[in-house]
Design a binder for these strands. Sequence first.
RNA 1: CGGGACGUGGCGCAGCCUGGUAGCGCACCUCGUUUGGGACGAGGGGGUCGCCAGUUCGAAUCUGGCCGUCCCGACCA
Length: 573
Amino acid sequence: MTRLSEYLLPTEKEAPADAEAISHKLMVRAGLIRQMGAGIWTWLPAGWRVHQRAVAIIREEIDAIGGQEMLMPVLQPAEPWRKTGRYAIDALFKLTDRKGAELVLAMTHEEAVTTHVAQVVRSYRDLPMTLYHFQVKERDEARPRAGVLRTREFIMKDSYTFDRDLAGLERSYDAHAGAYERIMQRSGLRYYRVEADVGMMGGSGAHEYMAPCPAGENEVALAGDYAANLEVASADPVPVTLPEAPDAPEAVATPGLTTVRDVAAELGLPEGALLKAYPVVVDGDGEERLVLVLVRGDHQVNEIKLALALSADSRPAQAAEIEAKLGPPGFIGPVQAPGEIEVLLDRAVAAAAPGGYVTGANRVDEHLRGVVPGRDFAFREVDVRNVLAGDTVGGVTVEIEPAIEVGNIFKLGTRYSEALGASYLDEDGREQPIWMGSYGIGPARIAAAAVEQNADEHGISWPRSLAPFDVHLVSLGKAGTPERDAADAVYELLAGSALDVVYDDREIGTGEKFADAELLGCPLRLTVGRRSLESGEIEVQIRRGREQAPPLALDGEPDALLGALHELWRSLP
RNA sequence: CGGGACGUGGCGCAGCCUGGUAGCGCACCUCGUUUGGGACGAGGGGGUCGCCAGUUCGAAUCUGGCCGUCCCGACCA
């Protein structure tokens, strides 16, 4: 029973002044969410209905693959977080109780679930197992943003699988991948499943479910069937034509020219015919060493791919370090005394057609031309560059699109089980670590992504699976008029049906009612007013596209009306 | 954490430069008229101007400190 005259739906004509993202503006304007602090949000009744619809879809699909729903606490002792090494994470909220005991607010639940499994699982006969819950996550984000898109507190469905070996993990992972495909489809989102960074902590594979939209914080590289987070994407570069290489590198004077652009312009070459030298300092087992990373002049180093290639974190070298080990900044290059500094050469260069590149000469105001990798310097081939729009994968041109990460699936391996002692005895009585996977998805991000992808100048246009209500019934008559009585009757009929209906019975102007209905964005709007009595029809608007649907008979058989309405509803996206 | 901006009724803003006891639009309350796309008239209620200190006879306004919020970037296990 939902009458707007009695329902908390505080709509606003104007968006918050500081809102940028579409979903931020519209979800506040439509009365779905309200802010309490930076990255801290309340879900108002209609917004919570959307959230709960997303939750219901997720629950059904995780149950369908054998997930067992439970609930683990947000407030947790610090010890297991110390054991897994995650106590050091900056984004982890830490606190002490009155006795001085150290506690944390969980940002995810690997520690909790693994602790329990370690206590409870003894035998290979107890595996495999899938546990999950919907629970609040707390993260001290450096920068919350865009309404409900990136918050410090949010509800996540996180599930965890426990298997006896890698093969079992692969099966559990694939089962989740299937469930996630169905969740995304049922949510009515446009999405990509992309290859993702597994991070420095290992793990043998990860995918993210990305909903493309302008407010997205991630970038996705797309080419036919290929889809990857830009953090890990690989592609074939647009080729460059190189000048023929002389027998040995030749020095060219380049006074004051320290950028790729300047040197390329001076020499009349494309930027891709130069090699960009990016010196970094790697901390290898406490000892720092300088490494020279080379990418094509028109390419950029990707920090995450570089970290993977180095198996270590690195930082850009400072000018003094460059000067001491290599040469004057702005003129550095790979041609040097052999073995001095390790050179990493990006695959886009290593795989290119023959020819000579231009590089810094390690001398002030000088470059070398005709430099041939392999002949003139030794290198290790790596893939560290950012993919660019226009690159190709399997001959298909790459496009890059911003997207919201709404879910991820991750092969954890044995990192947590080993840290927390989650093991089992196999048939031979040998103790084995449990192989784990973890799988997260955010109902709030599903909701926000749906708004981002389905909005127009009038407001939200929900996919029917997520809409706060299926039908928005507008009464245009004042209390006591025959048209109001007719609207009341339609409401009573719908309220007893399988469709969720919200009834605008407020004593306000027509325009305001229509505007609110289109702002809130339920898939179908029914209007009952004086015209309805004259024509015997209920006006029907489909929110998506704001099209008029064939009207429904006002005085027909109730079952026929409900049937027709339900059929129309089911035909919607 | 670096850069930038902002903080004045529920929302959006003006006032601040040049100090004198707070204003506009929307929203809200009452009455009346309206009623198929954000109506009209009349009357009315609501703000210690983010907080603390300082300067001054007097501070929304000037000074200092703090807090909060947003945007860009860094970060995001």
